[in-house]
Design a protein around this nucleic acid. Structure first.
Length: 256
DNA sequence: ATGGTTGCCTCGCAA
């Protein structure tokens, strides 16, 4: 049994105490982290090592940053998404752990949609799709997890009308997400829970958490060889209710 | 209500 979780921490340094407490109780084998907001040299690797985790880190000052934590050895690390060597943003890390090919993804937010940020998001999604094709061709069990910054359907949004024009919900973003999943990737959470209103992110502002007004934008996408082994999945809402919480909460799955 | 909050390490930007 392998438990894999993805969590946008919104600064790993600000979230270190919460993260360590969570690792101690949830005990995931593999953790995909996003929005570290620090350089790799400042990542608290020693604290995680003390809890039994190795780390592969792609950092960036102030913004972005992704990592993979794992109890088993991490090998064959890839530190950028193929398709644009000039892209300086730290949004992708991929590695092999216990025979699984795993990626931690921080997909661009894309707002405001009338800026260059929205076409960057869509281009990034096209690059991800092309790379996913290559990963699927390997026929390894592959897990592409992270903050996709896409709410796939209106069931994943507390107020679809209010969010219709947002980059997280725009038809172009949803179409690009479908083009990715239609390659043959399984949304691990949706394999176990078809209910509307199951969120992974709640804005800090306007009491969104207290009103349970959120979006489901953090996903674990599984290749067929990984999906064959899927035995459970869920969203751990408890982290969002803690003091000093991230605005995201962990999404997890278990493979046999 | 064009509001509100958090984190960066600056007096604005990103989410």
């Amino acid at each position: 049994m392998v438990k894999i979780a993805t969590w946008n921490v919104n600064s790993i340094k600000a979230r270190l105490a919460n993260a360590c407490a969570w690792l101690d109780t949830a005990r995931p084998d593999i953790v995909l982290l996003q929005e570290l907001k620090c350089q790799a040299a400042d990542f608290p690797a020693l604290e995680f090592k003390a809890l039994g985790y190795q780390a592969a880190v792609v950092g960036q000052k102030s913004y972005n940053g992704v990592a993979i934590l794992a109890r088993d050895p991490i090998t064959d690390v890839v530190e950028r998404l193929p398709g644009d060597e000039a892209d300086p943003q730290a949004r992708y890390v991929e590695a092999t752990i216990a025979g699984l090919r795993v990626a931690s993804i921080y997909l661009p937010n894309g707002n405001p949609v009338d800026s260059e940020k929205f076409p960057y998001k869509l281009q990034w999604m096209a690059r991800l799709r092309q790379h996913a094709r290559a990963l699927l061709a390997s026929e390894l069990p592959v897990i592409l997890g992270g903050d996709y910054n896409v709410a796939p359907t209106n069931d994943d949004v507390y107020d679809p009308a209010a969010w219709a024009a947002d980059a997280l919900c725009r038809p172009e973003s949803r179409a690009a997400f479908r083009r990715l999943t239609h390659l043959g990737l399984t949304d691990a959470f949706r394999a176990y829970d078809e209910r509307a209103g199951q969120y992974s992110y709640w804005d800090y502002q306007a009491g969104r958490w207290q009103r349970d007004e959120g979006l489901r934008i953090d996903h674990l996408l599984l290749s067929p060889q990984a999906a064959d082994r899927l035995s459970l999945a869920g969203i751990d809402r408890t982290l969002r209710g803690r003091d000093k919480a991230s605005d995201h909460t962990p999404v997890w799955c278990e493979l046999t």
